[in-house]
């Protein structure tokens, strides 16, 4: 199974990058999930609300349509600890908006442009993610 995982990862990654390329070359916009969603939440993206909503709808619906074609386990294995989910959700929501990007915007779109800010942000959230696992899994044992 592990041998196949990296192939599916690469295939899926190419699809994600192709999506970003369509958004950039078609609409002239950076495909960043937190920015597209966050702009609707805080009102800063009101003038481009239609393209944001269509993007998010397609992002939500497409995996649902693919599920019947899949025979493998698709469980997200998400924790059922609500305190962890709320704390993590708040941190992700606040952090990505303050930093103006997440894994897609800074990670995929920023690194591929050799953007200093994108690279620095990606290093910061990867290191913090690693620290998070050390603290919350190995030291505190809450996840």
């Amino acid at each position: 199974m592990i041998e196949q995982d990296w192939i599916w990862g690469l295939v899926g990654g190419l699809m994600i990058g192709a999506g970003g390329a369509v958004y950039l070359l078609g609409n002239g916009r950076i495909m960043g999930a937190s920015g597209i969603l966050g702009g609707l939440i805080d009102g800063s993206g009101r003038s481009t609300a239609a393209e944001r909503l269509v993007f998010l709808a397609a992002l939500l619906v497409t995996p649902a349509l693919l599920i019947p074609l899949y025979s493998v386990d698709i469980s997200t294995h998400v924790t059922d600890n609500w305190a962890v989910l709320v704390a993590a959700g708040l941190a992700v929501g606040i952090g990505t908006r303050i930093a103006n990007g997440c894994t897609s915007g800074h990670g995929v779109c920023g690194i591929s442009r050799l953007s200093l800010r994108g690279i620095a942000a990606t290093v910061a959230f990867l290191v913090a993610g690693g620290v998070s696992l050390v603290v919350f899994r190995h030291i505190l044992g809450v996840i």
Binding site: A33, V84, A91, T96, A99, C102
Partner: peptide, 18 residues
């Protein structure tokens, strides 16, 4: 600062916005 906060939450739940 924002990216560090995001990374902590990302690791905690294993989910990012996309």
């Amino acid at each position: 600062g924002g990216s560090v906060l995001f990374g902590l939450g990302w690791g905690l739940a294993g989910l990012c916005p996309g």
